[in-house]
Design a binder for these strands. Structure first.
Length: 497
DNA sequence: CTATGGCACGGATT
DNA sequence: AATCCGTGCCATAG
C-alpha cells in the first residue's frame, strides 16, 4: 500500500515546495523522492519549530509579534482552516470531519485549539490524587525545588552549604559526600553541616538529603508519626532491623525486637505503601500516599487525544495544540501600505513581510506534519490509546518516517519534547508511542499481579515464550526492575490490595 | 545449585 | 556520533 499514484503527487509537491525556498526535492537511488532541506533560514525555522514544544513556540511568536509590524494576530476565535467562528469549547465542528471515505480509521482530527482549556482540567489533576498542586509551580530540578523551600530558613553561611549539598545529590536524592569532607572544606564543624542536612530532609520530597534509604525512611516515619497513627514498632524496625525488613527476614526481626509476625507484616505493608526509600526518584509529590510509580506527569500536553463525547466506543478525537491564541496572518494593512512604500523603507518592509509569511508558513507546516504523523501513529497504535499499555505495538521512528515519506530526523524532531494526553487523562511523552518493550513489561506486570506463587524470572521467560514472545531471562529481570517489582523470593510473604 | 543483579558489549535507533 | 536496549557472562546471595 505504498505509492503508485505517487508520481503525480510528487510532481505536485515538487512545485509547491520549490516555490517555498529552502526545500529541495531529490531522487534517491531507489527512485524514491525525498524532500530535503537546503540550508536556509526558512527550513531552519520549520525544523526548529517541529522540535519545540507549544510553549516555547508561543514565546517565539510573541517576540516576533512585538517586533514585526507585518505580522498580525486576530484574536477572534475563528477556525484557521475553515474560517468559521469557533464555538466556546474551541473545537471546530466543521473541520472535525473524518478523513476521506475510508473513515474506518476511526480517527478524527479537529482543528487545533489555541489553548488548553478543558472543562475537565481540574479533574485531570484529581485523577492524580497523589499529586498536589505544588507541581504547577513549574518543574524545577530537584536542588532548586528544595532550596526554594528552605531558603528562607537559612542563615547566609548556611546557604552555601545547602547549595553544595543539594547539587551533590544523586538521582535517588541521597547525599554521597561524607560529612567531614564538606565540613573541612567549608571550615565548619560537622554539626553545622548536620543542621543544614536536617532542614533539607524535612523539605518536600521528605527525606531528601539522607545518606541511604534507611535514613530517608526514618525521617519520613518521624514526620508521619506526628500526623497519623503508624503501626506499632515501625520506628524500631526501621531503626534496628532495616536490612532484615528489606530482605523479608521477618522471623529474625520478631525474635530480636519481640514483635509478632502480624505486627511486622503491618509494618511492612505500611512502609511499602506510604514511604519512599528513594525520595529523589521519579517525581516528587506528596510522599504520604505515593506508592504507585506513575509515569512522569506533565501539565501542558502538546496533543490531546480523547473519545468523541467521552464515549469509549466512539471515534478518537485528536487535537494538536496550537501555540498561538487566535490565529496569525500577515497584516493586510501592512501589505497595502507596502505597495506604495517609500523607496527608503521598501527593503526593510519587504523583509518584514517575508518574515511574517515565513513564520506563518512554518507554523502551518509544523501543524501539517504533526497531523500527518499522528494519523500514521494512531493507525498503528489506536489500541494502545484505547486499551492501555498492554496493546502497544513496537514501532520505531524510522518506520513512521517511511510511511510518511519524510526524513527520520523530521519524525524524531516532531516526537521529541512533546507530550500527549490520552483519553484516560494521563499525560505521557509522545515518545512512549515508540516504546519497544512497554507491552512486554505490562504483560509481566499482569503476570506477577495474578500469580499464585511467585514466578521466578526463568518461569516468566517460559510463559512469555509460550505466548510467542522471546526474550532473555536477563531482560525479564530488567523489566521487573523498571516496573518496581521485587524479585520472586521477596514477593511471597505479603500480597493483597 | 538456583535466582538475581552488575558490568559491559554490540547492534539498533535517533 | 551519541544513545538506548537486549543480552551474555560472571559474581554473589540464598
Amino acid at each position: 500500500m505504498e505509492c503508485s499514484a505517487n508520481n503525480d503527487a510528487a510532481a505536485h509537491v515538487k512545485v509547491l515546495w520549490e516555490r517555498q525556498k529552502g526545500f529541495k526535492m531529490y531522487q534517491t537511488q531507489k527512485g524514491k523522492t525525498e524532500i530535503r532541506q537546503a540550508p536556509s533560514a526558512l527550513l531552519a525555522q520549520t525544523m526548529t519549530f517541529l522540535g519545540m514544544s507549544a510553549d516555547e513556540i508561543r514565546e517565539r511568536i510573541e517576540s516576533e509579534l512585538s517586533i514585526n509590524p507585518a505580522l498580525e494576530r486576530i484574536e477572534e476565535r475563528i477556525c484557521p482552516t475553515c474560517k468559521r467562528p469557533l464555538p466556546d469549547h474551541g473545537l471546530c465542528m466543521h473541520c472535525s470531519v473524518p478523513k476521506s471515505e475510508d473513515d474506518q480509521s476511526n480517527i478524527v482530527f479537529v482543528s487545533p485549539r489555541d489553548e488548553f482549556i478543558l472543562p475537565g482540567y481540574s479533574s485531570y489533576s484529581d485523577s492524580y490524587q497523589n499529586e498536589p498542586d505544588i507541581d504547577s509551580v513549574q518543574r524545577d530540578d530537584l536542588p532548586t525545588y528544595v532550596l526554594r523551600q528552605i531558603g528562607p530558613d537559612l542563615q547566609e553561611d548556611q546557604k552555601k552549604i545547602a547549595a553544595y549539598l543539594l547539587t551533590g545529590l544523586n538521582d535517588d536524592g541521597f547525599i554521597t559526600t561524607p560529612t567531614y569532607e564538606i565540613a573541612s572544606y567549608y571550615h565548619v564543624s560537622p554539626s553545622d553541616i548536620e543542621e543544614v542536612i536536617e532542614l533539607i530532609q524535612h523539605a518536600d520530597p521528605l527525606g531528601v538529603g539522607s545518606r541511604n534509604p534507611q535514613e530517608a525512611l526514618m525521617v519520613q516515619v518521624n514526620h508521619l508519626a506526628n500526623l497519623v497513627n503508624i503501626p506499632f514498632g515501625t520506628k524500631e524496625i526501621i531503626e534496628n532491623a532495616y536490612d532484615e525488613l528489606m530482605h523479608g527476614k521477618y522471623r529474625e526481626i520478631g525474635k530480636r525486637l519481640s514483635l509478632t509476625q502480624k505486627q511486622i507484616q503491618l509494618v511492612e505493608k505500611f512502609v511499602r505503601e506510604n514511604l519512599n526509600p528513594f525520595p529523589g526518584r521519579a517525581f516528587w509529590g506528596d510522599n504520604v500516599l505515593n506508592s504507585d510509580r506513575e509515569p512522569e506527569t506533565f501539565h501542558q500536553p502538546d496533543i490531546i487525544i480523547s473519545y468523541l463525547n467521552d464515549n469509549p466506543n466512539e471515534q478518537l478525537v485528536v487535537e494538536i495544540i496550537m501555540p498561538v491564541s487566535g490565529y496569525l496572518q500577515s497584516s493586510p494593512i501592512f501589505k497595502h501600505a507596502f505597495r506604495n512604500a517609500p523607496e527608503l523603507k521598501a527593503d526593510a518592509w519587504k523583509n518584514d513581510l517575508d518574515r511574517a509569511s515565513l513564520l506563518i508558513k512554518c507554523l502551518h507546516q509544523r501543524n501539517n506534519t504533526m497531523v500527518r504523523m499522528m494519523q500514521a501513529l494512531l493507525e498503528v497504535q489506536s489500541n494502545f490509546v484505547r486499551h492501555g499499555d498492554g496493546s502497544i505495538v513496537p514501532l520505531t521512528r524510522a518506520q513512521v518516517a517511511k510511511t510518511l515519506d519524510v526524513h527520520e530526523s523530521t519524525v524524531s524532531r516532531a516526537v521529541s519534547n512533546k507530550t500527549v494526553m490520552l483519553p484516560n487523562r494521563k499525560v505521557i511523552p509522545l515518545s512512549s508511542f515508540f516504546d519497544r518493550s512497554l507491552n512486554v513489561r505490562t504483560i509481566i506486570k499482569d503476570l506477577v499481579r495474578d500469580e499464585e506463587k511467585p514466578l521466578s524470572d526463568a518461569k516468566i521467560v517460559e510463559i512469555l515464550t509460550d505466548m510467542g514472545i522471546e526474550i532473555a531471562r536477563r531482560t525479564v529481570a530488567k523489566y521487573r526492575a523498571m516496573e518496581g517489582i521485587l524479585p520472586a523470593h521477596l514477593r511471597n510473604m505479603v500480597k493483597m490490595r
